[in-house]
Design a protein around this nucleic acid. Structure first.
Length: 762
DNA sequence: GCGATCAGCT
DNA sequence: CACAGCTGATCGC
């Protein structure tokens, strides 16, 4: 929840996302999106009175936000005081869906022309002032009592948080300031935002007021939107395809932000989503056509004050309980982020929490690594957190963020960053090659290669960007060039660097897939002037993969030398590979015992008595994430076989077990190869009887011995950030220690000499 | 009666 | 704890 007070230090005459108290005196108001915690005071009578007595005070927001706001009669009084800062046709493209799915981009959320209505309600001046696309807007801030005037430019940037959500970039006498509101931007998105750049360089940004909701190493990696979406999609598909009586209830909170989920489910499955209300989308046909108020559909996102009770009574919140006399078979899917962040064990993006309840990973906010990527690119002088993460303090957050800011980068002696010079290689390469990618998960080697021409076209903005955002890193990276030379395997150090780099301001985010991409795509001519200071100077041919050269990424991954601060980078590529996801896939198949997801599932599958309704008291809610490979339908049968708490662990059904063992990717097998399959693969959280829970825990830990929750180890502060990225299928980093240069040197040397290095699990 | 705040509940 | 709400109780105007 935002704790931002509404005002920027640099421009106190503005109020953003807060409209009470001192903000009542603001000369202009800004609303980043339509969530209540950003609308405090927006409908208060005090502000209402202020508007009535002022001709100048305006509220600036995106067209979609305006539409959503004015649909609510409580905010209708704003109608003549809202400025749309961008043309109608532009916001939808850039604001939200662009991060979601290409095919819905083309007009999502575009309020249709409200010609009659608009012209009758908006002043002529407002209509004329409608701004050009991608043109910063000049605003005159007039103090109506003193006549004092201040000009400022504001630019709306897409925030990817919910429909209509934007960030505000202010430029004026006191410097350039970015207020992010709430945002979810994938890695690399900031680099792709033209309006954050002047020419080819990142603008000189004085301060960033940052959404720090998940600025906690606990949320180091959150699966991309597409991964989460695909996980939900396959679960919904597999369930709803069983019969017309199999319905899904999406247990979504009452807030904007789930629309793209509804849209995609509807588009992919041809099933509209039942919602309580849809009039707010009446002018947004791209949403409207995928939702319905007709209860006779298989996907529901309707709500009821006591919807959980409804569900327990096999009733949907809308009251539906059967159709044509046949009882509905209902499963619930609860989108969650924090819940996943709290998991000790690695989980899938879908976790089964009960007989017919699931959690699905879903986030409106950027993960820690995405925040860092964003901030690192902006490289402001100051950063101010808008949100205190759960259990966090401002100091703690600042500690995490400041290393990404300019003064820190300039002044700090770099800590251990043996391979920091490679960062730019990755950065470059990411940007050079993935400009069309919406998700980091698409950054796979399987992705179609981008043409050389495209690369060249995109290059300029990259080559110069470091001058600002990362120019100060040059010194530090240079200072670490020397250690690199003790081996000839410089290329591979790219991976080592990432893996070992524990430092907040130096962990680079491009992943293993990127590394592969690098090896395949780095071209000699990219070693341009900018890159000579760093590893781009490595001749391209050295980057060719060689079978006999140790795979550093593999090495680190398998043997857990990597700091998982880079783990996301080892995250199994999914959505991009072959256009389908592989939630449980291993990116390499090498002795990866920590990838429990599917291959261990046959051992760890933990099915307790669930055949009757009696599970309520027993619950399925513990800290044990295990994997269940079985269908709901089959479960019913299986549960009866394993009823009564006797068998704490049971084998998965043969077929599923075989499948999972065969390809290490149960979900993939399901989603890809078994269209319409009745199997659902997901992590199963099981809390059975207390006793069983205990034994189950023991068992799971035995299976998961490779991934103890080191994140809580008190002596690992330095790499806490990485160590605790234990969630979301990130390979854990048990017993990892901060790699010391000498130790690394030894390891590198051994590897370079072709010796095998096997680290025993502790 | 209304708004603000807080506890409780997802 | 709470992603982002909601409901209901209480208090003051």
């Amino acid at each position: 929840m935002s704790r931002f007070g509404g005002r920027l230090r640099e421009y106190p005459a503005l109020s953003i996302d807060r409209f009470d108290r001192d903000n009542l005196r603001a000369r202009a108001y800004f609303l980043s999106h339509c969530h209540k915690d950003h609308m405090k005071g927006l409908r208060a009578s005090a502000l209402k009175r202020r508007l009535e007595s002022s001709l100048k005070v305006k509220l600036y927001c995106s067209p979609v936000t305006k539409e959503l706001l004015l649909t609510n009669w409580k905010y209708k009084f704003w109608e003549n005081h809202i400025m749309q800062a961008l043309k109608l046709s532009t916001i939808p493209f850039t604001s939200y869906c662009v991060y979601v799915h290409r095919h819905i981009v083309s007009g999502f959320g575009v309020p249709q022309a409200r010609t009659g209505e608009s012209s009758s309600h908006m002043t002529a001046q407002e209509l004329q002032v409608a701004l050009e696309v991608e043109t910063p807007t000049q605003i005159s801030l007039v103090d109506e009592t003193s006549g004092e005037k201040e000009d400022i430019e504001v630019t709306l940037l897409p925030a990817g948080h919910c429909p209509g959500s934007v960030m505000f970039l202010f430029q004026g006498e006191n410097g350039t300031v970015l207020y992010t509101g709430d945002f979810r931007l994938a890695k690399g998105e900031a680099a792709r935002m033209e309006l954050l750049h002047s020419g080819t360089r990142v603008k000189d940004i004085q301060s960033v007021y940052l959404d720090t909701t998940f600025c906690d190493p606990k949320f180091y990696h959150i699966p991309s939107r597409e991964e989460c979406l695909n996980g939900i999609l396959e679960l919904v598909r597999s369930w709803t395809s069983l019969s017309r009586y199999h319905v899904v209830w999406l247990n979504c909170k009452a807030a904007y932000g789930y629309e793209y989920l509804f849209i995609n489910l509807s588009e992919e499955l041809g099933i509209k989503v039942h919602v309580n209300k849809l009039d707010m989308f009446r002018n947004m046909p791209e949403i409207l056509c995928h939702i319905t108020t007709d209860r006779h559909t298989q996907i529901h996102a309707c709500r009821h004050p006591r919807d959980d009770d409804c569900f327990r009574g096999n009733r949907l919140p809308c009251g539906m309980t059967c159709q044509n006399g046949t009882p509905l078979r209902i499963i619930s899917i609860k989108p969650s982020t924090m819940w996943f962040g709290e998991r000790i064990k690695k989980t899938s993006v879908i976790v089964r929490t009960g007989e017919s309840t699931y959690r699905a990973c879903f986030s409106f906010h950027s993960s820690f690594s995405e925040i860092k990527d964003f901030l690192r690119h902006i490289c402001p002088v100051n950063v101010y957190p808008n949100v205190l993460p759960v259990g966090g303090t401002e100091d703690k957050v600042m500690e995490l963020l400041q290393p990404l800011c300019r003064l820190y980068r300039r002044n700090m002696e770099p800590r251990y960053k043996p391979l920091g010079t490679l960062k730019r290689v990755h950065k470059r390469d990411l940007s050079d090659t993935d400009e069309d990618d919406l998700f980091d998960t698409e950054l796979t080697s399987a992705r179609p290669k981008i043409s050389k021409q495209q690369r060249e076209e995109s290059r300029p903005s990259e080559t110069t960007q470091p001058e600002n955002a990362e120019g100060n890193m040059k010194e530090s990276t240079d200072s670490y060039k020397a250690p690199l030379t003790y081996t000839s395997l410089q290329v591979d150090f790219m991976d080592c660097e990432e893996s070992n780099d524990d430092d907040d301001d130096d962990d680079d985010d491009e992943d293993k897939e990127d590394t592969e991409k690098n090896t395949a795509q780095v071209l000699p001519q990219e070693s341009d002037a900018t890159s000579t200071a760093n590893c781009n100077g490595v001749p391209g041919d050295q980057q060719e993969p060689k079978a006999d050269v140790p795979r550093w990424d593999t090495f680190f991954k398998c043997d857990r030398l990597d700091e998982s601060s880079e783990n996301e980078d080892n995250f199994p590529s999914s959505a991009g590979a072959g256009g389908s996801q592989s939630l449980f896939s291993d990116s390499d198949g090498v002795s990866d015992s920590t990838h429990i997801s599917s291959q261990n599932s046959s051992q760890s599958t933990h099915i307790s008595e669930q055949g009757s309704q009696g599970w309520g008291s027993q619950g399925w809610d513990s800290q044990m994430d295990t994997v269940l490979i079985t269908s709901q339908e089959r479960n019913a049968a299986d549960f009866s076989c394993f009823s009564r708490a006797g068998s704490r662990t049971v084998p998965v059904p043969h077929e599923a077990a075989k499948e999972s063992q065969a390809d290490n990717s149960g979900w993939k097998a399901l989603g890809q190869n078994r269209s319409g399959a009745s199997d659902v693969i997901c992590d199963l959280k099981s809390k059975d009887s207390e006793k069983e829970a205990e034994s189950g825990t023991a068992h799971v830990q035995e299976v998961l011995v490779e991934m103890p929750d080191t994140s809580r180890a008190p002596d690992l502060d330095l790499k806490r950030d990485s160590q605790s990225s234990s969630d979301f299928e990130i390979p854990l980093t048990p017993d990892a220690e901060l790699p010391q240069p000498d130790k690394l040197y030894c390891l590198y040397k051994k590897l370079a000499a072709g010796e095998s290095i096997v680290r025993k699990p502790s």
